[in-house]
Structure formats: C-alpha cells, structure tokens
Design a binder for these strands. Structure first.
Lengths: 110, 110
DNA sequence: ATTATATGAAACCAAAAGGTGTTATGTCAA
DNA sequence: TTGACATAACACCTTTTGGTTTCATATAAT
C-alpha cells in the first residue's frame, strides 16, 4: 500500500542509467535539484524530468526548503523488483529446479 | 563472466512488459517463436524484436530445431539485478540504516 | 529595493522504441 | 515436387524518450 499511486512502471523508471544514478546519489544524501544536477553532464531541466519520472514511480519524494526543493529516496517500491527477481532465482544454478517448481506451484501468470 | 557480451543493458531489456512476459513464459517452458507469439496480441515480427533485445541482454538463448527456433531462458544476468536491488534493501525499513551504512562502507559509486 | 539564486514551465527537436505489413528463404510432409 | 509452415529480412510508420533553450517566478541576501 504505497502512499501515492505509482503512475509509472518501476521497471521503466529504472531503465535509464541517469535515473539509477540519481537514486544512488539520494541513497547517500538527501539533496536539492541543483546539487543533484551538478553530478551529471546534462542540463538541470533534463535532471528534473528524470526526477519527475522517479517521483511518479514512487521512488523519490521531495519537500521544499526555502527556495530549494530537497529530494529524498523512497525505496519501498523496489520491493516489487526484489520479488520479481526472486522468482527467477530458482533457475540460476540448475535447470532441473524449473521442472520441480512448475509442478509444485502452478502459477501460470503472476 | 557471461558466455557472450551483453550488448544491451539488462534494466532496459526488462523495462518492457511484453519482454517480461516472454521471460515468464520461457521460465515455464522452452518454446518456439510461433508458440511464444500466440500469447500476445502483437505481431510475430514484434515478438521477434523483443526476443532480439532479450538475446542481446543475455537473458535468452535459442537453438534451431528443424524449421523451428526454440528459445530458452538464460537467467544468469539477473544476478546483476539482484545485486543492484540488494544495495537498496538496507534502506527499506528505517532510515537510520542509511547513515550507518555510508559510514561503514565508503562506496561512493557502484 | 535590487540582485543573485533555485526552481518551474513551455516549446521544440532528434533519435529510439514499439509496432505494422510485405516479401524471401529454408524445411517438413504429402 | 509442391504446398504448407516457421522463421528471416526489410521497409515503413507513429509515439515516446531524453535532451535542449528560453522565459517566468519565488526566495535569499546585500
């Protein structure tokens, strides 16, 4: 139950390397748009667009502080990603597990 | 050490829901292009394009069987995804962990 | 009050993504 | 060998994506 609806698919949000870079920066420190932008070679406007995508995916939030807007990480939606990948973990080492699993659980779709 | 170079970023490969659907189908059963295509509302040609993307990301492989081309899941590259997400796991429950971590390990990038 | 700073918002653009349909090639089966 | 089937290879199209520049607004500091 996320506080806000996730308008953007999390997989799509993470597809862009700049956006993943933003998440990593925010994992170190909450920071303003200007500070975030200083770490990339693209314009501030472009970074803001990425922040909007991340925000719509529920991965970041922000609050105004004077004339600054401070962004912070909101990692909870990544749980979905973890669950997704954990399904595939069973196939990593031997292929026999696949058969075993599909017999035990009969999950055809999600 | 993947057998083949991954020309396509795994995050990008997973961004498309159809491609994730293909992976899920292949996790159940190795299958031909025709059989895979039957599960989607898009053309076979479109499915082939998705398969090419997945192949370039190292997530699927194929082998010819007569006039058919059988695709199978290659889940190993997903380990990278798991590692990526595991970094963020530490931030899931309380925000204090963040500080703790960044003090102990001083990993600024990657 | 004025100036510098931080962000917001809009218009625009090129390239990539995701889709289509058509035609060609290789293989199986009758 | 002929027809059907499975895939390959193109050419083409529309929308989305990731970027730009420019202009406007709000706040801080002198």
């Amino acid at each position: 139950m996320p506080t806000e609806a996730q308008k953007t698919d999390i997989f799509q949000a993470l597809a862009d390397p700049t956006r993943r870079g933003v998440l990593h920066l925010l994992s170190k420190k909450d920071q303003s748009i200007a500070e975030l932008s200083s770490h990339f070679d693209i314009s501030r406007t472009a970074v803001v667009k990425h922040l909007n995508v991340l925000n719509e995916a529920g991965l970041v939030r922000s609050e105004k502080n004077g004339r600054e807007k401070i962004y912070y990480l909101q990692p909870e939606p990544l749980k979905e990603l973890k669950e997704w990948v954990s399904y595939y973990e069973q196939f990593w080492y031997n292929k026999l597990t696949k058969l075993k699993y599909s017999v035990e659980n009969d999950t055809l779709n999600k």
